[in-house]
Design a protein around this nucleic acid. Sequence first.
DNA 1: ATGGGTGCAAAGCATTTGCAGTACA
DNA 2: TGTACTGCAAATGCTTTGCACCCAT
Lengths: 154, 154
Amino acid sequence: MTESPRAKPGARSEFDDFLRKARLKKTRTRELIFNEIFSRSTIHPDAAAVHKRLRSKGHGVSLATVYRTLKLMVRSGLVSPLDLGEGHSHYEPGTNRPGHGHFICLVCGRVCEFENKELRALLDRVGEAEGFELKKHSLQVFGTCRECRKKKKE
Amino acid sequence: MTESPRAKPGARSEFDDFLRKARLKKTRTRELIFNEIFSRSTIHPDAAAVHKRLRSKGHGVSLATVYRTLKLMVRSGLVSPLDLGEGHSHYEPGTNRPGHGHFICLVCGRVCEFENKELRALLDRVGEAEGFELKKHSLQVFGTCRECRKKKKE
DNA sequence: ATGGGTGCAAAGCATTTGCAGTACA
DNA sequence: TGTACTGCAAATGCTTTGCACCCAT
């Protein structure tokens, strides 16, 4: 069981903690899937992409196990599902990232994250006004990215 | 072909306009589905709910047509799909409602809309900073509603 | 050893589609 | 009348599950 090369400091031990608390086993397969999500936080893969990537690296992991493990990681609070408007889930590392959202380019499909402190404060304020206790949120902004706007003008 | 009792003023003619422009036919079935979405904007039904509701009213509409029509209405820009975290789409009237979002109670499942001008301005600002041309957005806030918080404390 | 973990194939849902018949323009 | 629209059932695509075997503890 090797350490992830680019894992966030702390994230790995969170996974370990979760596994220990839930009396779940630490397996090679789970580590591989975990690393696939955490090593490149800008990718936002779906289950099929994780599966394909692992296969192409020579790891014989089944799609069923990818789904099982992703579900596990979502329940553990380490990973969040992400709706890019494609009708199925993508995944990204982390949960409870206040003020965090995504730009999704409708032309090229690129996804770009952003983080904004005002947004967090704003949502807290709106929630409080409604008597609503905010746990997490999901914000997607669809439009055209800088590059695609440039191309369109040419 | 009767008028919708509670349709937004203007919304109906938008639908008519869309149908005319796209050379689509105005049918009883499309009108029924349209009204089901627009008559109760707080309901956010999924396709199955629209279908069930129409059936219970004695209208023999097929689920396939409900899906086809909802897709049509989404493309027309009259209706927006809504991800309530259930793994399938719900629908609400309207598109391009800047500063619009949803609270979703994780305990009772109730959905509550909100509208906030600051949010709109904030997203525009963040988009501009990225060179991103904002078309629409989707914001869901998950947590516990006032009533469920009260019950929990008791 | 013993119970959880995994692969495989089959099942389960939401959604889409082919086709033949129906209804709007 | 002609073509779009609809219902039905089959097909599709993503995700879950049952079961037999495997492996971490």
